[in-house]
Design a binder for these strands. Structure first.
Length: 574
RNA sequence: UGGGCCGUGGUGCAAUGGUAGCACAGCGGACUUUGGAUCCGUAGAUCCUGGUUCGAGUCCAGGCGGCCCAGCCA
């Protein structure tokens, strides 16, 4: 018999990608380019934390390499020591690893090649293709011209090779102040491509580098480093984002002038997500302004933030797979990410019961001292995950939202005259309510249970329309629960200036609830573990703030909530 | 008349000159001890104008629209 198709099955991350990049690589392999070899790399700058946009690039690069039995390396493009640091480098390594990718021995840094790069620069000076310019930064800008007008040659452009070598060596030997000289490529000041108007190759930076210390005071620009690093490592396909399209002719110029092999550069569109910002600058601003607690705040789209929020690497990889790769700038719907996350969590994670906003329920006809161990299923999607016992007694907690004295139409939960099921336990019926005499707030519900419905089935076959989660008061475990929602209130937060980010924040992006009541099996959960709180959503144990004495859970994502949609539709009607 | 790149349902990705398809979101229904999950159904797209062709989303031309480039950032 055919197995039933189940679209919730996440396919193992092995399946070949089918996108324009892969098609190009595939053709190159068939044509015998690069001797049929495929080598890619993921080249972040260690000046910030990786985010889901980087995950797209990581999955693409490692995925392509895997598809063609090639190599993908991790290379840190650390050419600007003023902004970079080893904490970032460390975080990058951890994040790529956590995503599930292995670069083996192929970990590199642009700084590993500083000597080679220096020699390349010398070579270009010797061949008359680079010169030391002593114009100020402002003058260089002025000489560069504009998008529509050509630039002018620097007065230093025709220095002799000897003089250039001398100056460049002295730059290297710490003889000059920052900004006094730069090394430039001698290309074409009237090029319609601004990158070709004698780009700066080296600048003086009296800054120590997190890997090379004080060995250097001149550092290559990214544009002079990236292509050569690829070349040195034997990268065949240099996959990068769209904004580098204009730089490709420059990279080719350097590599050709140097007479070395060069990879094929392929540009793809970076990821945009609605309700999300992904630019390093905006992410840093959120932290600096105190809108979030740090790079790993569970509301951040960083890998570390999503990890802390409870995302799984599998879901992130599947997402990167499903969004595809193309050249047009697009914005992916956050709903797709959440759908894929739920899909994975639904199949793999244990269920438990926990009451977030408790209200006491006393089952008046249940024996005072009786406690029953109720059998509960750990995951209805996977019988292999087994069952557990949950204690039931006379005094319980249920969710405050699950009772309404004057319910609207289609409200199936507990209300006067309505019978509901307590999951896996009994049918109960509302009898009366006890209010705080001063505030009028509902303090306790008095209910009766039907002993003939043990396990949640009525022997007479009668049905109920709702099943509620519950926790035995005497056996419950206290916890703090942090409810997260999207950080921004508007669809396209990247469209507002960084200074105004605070005006578009979602005020409900975090809600902290204390005094939540969880079933006792959750007393000894371990840091980072994930679960579903039935009818509430998926949660994980916070890796930073949770302890045995004080449990802290993060809501990763809600369950799909049909009831909320019905309510919303009703509100829109009225 | 700076240059480069890109335009397919609401969103993202396919269709590689031959029936415009998949997923998410939406809507409707079935089922249900999670208002979850699952299942079934449904609506909705080739930027415009010409050309080539038996046949164009795909090739060509011209428009229109969007993104990127004037860091000693990457």
């Amino acid at each position: 018999m055919e197995p039933k198709t189940n679209s919730s099955v996440i396919k193992p991350y092995k399946e070949s990608q089918n996108n324009f990049v892969s098609l190009i690589v595939s053709k190159d392999v068939k044509d015998g380019k690069f001797n049929g070899r495929v080598q890619t790399r993921f080249p972040p700058e260690p000046n910030g934390h990786l985010h889901i946009g980087h995950a797209k690039s990581i999955c693409l690069n490692f995925g392509i390499a895997a598809d063609y039995e090639g190599v993908c390396s991790l290379r840190l493009d650390d050419t600007n020591p003023a902004k970079e640091g080893s904490e970032f480098a460390q975080a990058i390594i951890e994040d790529v690893n956590w995503l599930g990718f292995d670069w083996g021995n192929n970990f590199h840094c642009a700084s590993d090649y500083f000597s080679e790069l220096y020699q390349f620069a010398i070579q270009l000076i010797h061949s008359g293709k680079a010169y030391v310019d002593s114009l100020s930064a402002e003058d260089i800008r002025a000489y560069r011209g504009t998008l529509k007008e050509p630039g002018r040659d620097s007065p230093y452009r025709d220095r002799s090779i000897e003089e250039n070598i001398d100056l460049f060596e002295r730059m290297r030997n710490k003889e000059f102040k920052e900004g006094s000289h730069v090394l430039r490529a001698k290309i074409d000041m009237s090029s319609s491509n601004m990158n070709l108007r004698d780009p700066v190759m080296y600048r003086i930076l009296h800054v120590s580098h997190h890997r090379t210390g004080n060995e250097w005071c001149i550092y290559p620009m990214y544009d002079f480093a990236h292509g050569q690093c690829d070349s040195i490592e034997g990268v065949t396909h240099s996959i990068c984002t769209l904004e580098f399209e204009n730089n490709r002719p420059l990279y080719d110029w350097f590599l050709d002038a140097l007479g070395v092999d060069h990879p094929r550069q392929i540009e793809f569109a970076r990821l945009n997500l609605n309700y999300t910002v992904l630019s390093k600058r905006r992410l840093a601003a959120l932290i600096d302004c105190g809108h979030v607690s740090g790079w790993d705040d569970p509301r951040m789209p960083t890998i570390s933030g999503m990890r802390r929020r409870g995302y799984t690497p599998e879901a992130l990889r599947e997402f990167c797979d499903r969004i595809g790769v193309a050249k047009r700038n697009t914005t992916v719907d956050l709903a797709l990410l959440e759908h894929i996350l739920r899909q994975h969590l639904n199949r793999t994670v244990q269920r438990a019961m926990g009451v977030l906003r408790p209200i006491r329920v006393v089952i008046v006809n249940y024996p005072e001292d009786q406690v029953e161990q109720i059998n509960a299923i750990n995951n209805p999607e996977d019988a292999a995950m087994g069952t557990r016992k949950v204690p039931f007694s006379r005094v319980l907690y249920i969710e405050r939202d699950d009772f309404l004295e004057n319910p609207p139409k289609k409200f199936y939960r507990l209300a006067p005259g309505q019978e509901v099921r307590l999951r896996y336990a009994y049918f109960i019926r509302y009898e009366s309510v006890i209010r705080n005499p001063e505030t009028g707030e509902v303090e306790e519900l008095r209910c009766t249970y039907d002993p003939d419905t043990r396990g949640g089935f009525a022997s007479d076959g009668r049905k109920v329309k709702a099943t509620l989660h519950w926790v035995s008061a005497a056996h419950s475990v206290d916890a703090e629960v942090r409810l997260y929602d999207r950080l921004f209130a508007i669809n396209d937060p990247a469209s507002v200036p960084v200074e105004d980010l605070d005006s578009i924040l979602n005020p409900a992006s975090i809600e902290i609830i204390h005094g939540c009541k969880l079933e006792p099996s959750l007393a000894d959960v371990t840091s980072g573990s994930r679960l579903q709180l039935e009818r509430q959503g998926y949660f994980c144990v916070d890796s930073v703030d949770s302890s045995v004495e004080h449990l802290v859970f993060n809501r990763t994502v809600t369950l799909r909530d049909t009831w909320a949609r019905i309510q919303k539709a009703n509100n829109n009607k009225s």
